[in-house]
């Protein structure tokens, strides 16, 4: 099949280190296949930079199939670019037109400081998880999977919440730098299931406390996070988190 390759101008954020002043660099790229992914296009750019003896652009990536949550670019004003429900690695160059100028920025949020170029430090999410995003189990024999009956709607909702890959697009998109969508997904996936219910109150309190402590903002229910989430995690999870948290606090 005949496809027209793209000639593009890239405006990429370059920053040497966490404390350095960053700036935009403009690069032109020729002959990019519309069937390549955004990250493959970035690979082509880096090859070009290396051949020219310049420093390649640093960016996060790992599985390149939309499940690891590593890739993290803010492309033309949107987290993970102009397609819905995809991560940057799943974004195809056919979403762009020949001659386009594409602006590529790192996640910008006080909770996610830039490490280098397009790489940001998302270890704050790990700290929130360590505060309560788990189920305590005694080691021993493997329990029978069907021993505890779980209603199908609950299982489905828990699964939808569990689809969160922790990429941080919600924080990056939120005008308040709030991590509520992430925290609510992690609280919901466990609070909806009997195994997670036992520690639900402690979990909600601990994870919200850690989120506040790390300086993430306060949710104002704009819903921008939900719109940009590559996994389509719903803000109804935030309502559930509020419910879980407030109930837990009023019980105290």
């Amino acid at each position: 099949m005949e496809v027209q390759n793209l000639n593009l101008t890239l405006k990429v954020w370059r920053q040497k280190g966490p404390k350095e002043q960053g700036h935009f660099e403009t690069y032109s790229l020729q002959n990019i296949s519309p069937n390549s992914s955004f990250l493959e296009m970035m690979d082509v750019l880096n090859e070009q930079l290396i051949n020219e003896g310049k420093e390649p652009v640093a960016f996060d990536h790992d599985c390149r199939e939309g499940i690891c949550g590593m890739c993290s670019m803010y492309i033309n004003g949107e987290a993970h670019g102009p397609d819905d429900h995809v991560t940057t690695c799943q974004l195809h160059m056919r979403k762009f037109k020949d001659g386009d100028t594409i602006t590529v920025e790192p996640w910008r949020s006080a909770g996610f400081p830039v490490i280098k170029d397009l790489i940001v430090d998302r270890s704050a999410f790990d700290k929130i998880m360590q505060a309560g995003g788990f189920v305590s189990v005694n080691t021993g024999g493997v329990p029978d999977g069907n021993a505890i009956p779980i209603p199908k709607p609950n299982a489905d909702e828990a699964m939808d919440a569990a689809s969160c890959i922790g990429c941080g697009a919600c924080v990056a998109t939120c005008k308040n730098g709030s991590a509520m969508l992430f925290v609510s997904a992690k609280v919901s996936q466990l609070a909806l299931l009997p195994q997670g219910k036992v520690e639900a109150a402690r979990r909600a309190k601990a994870m919200v406390a850690k989120m506040d402590e790390l300086g993430f903002g306060n949710c104002t229910n704009t819903g921008a996070c939900e719109a940009e989430c590559p996994k389509g995690v719903s803000i109804t999870n935030i309502a559930r988190l509020n419910r879980e948290f407030l109930c837990a606090k009023f019980v105290d």
Binding site: R108, S178, E226
Partner: peptide, 21 residues
Amino acid sequence: QNRKARGADRYDSEVRPASVE
């Protein structure tokens, strides 16, 4: 607090999703 959490660096380009009022 929210402005502080957003950080000093602003995006060069930003798109408001259609679903956001």
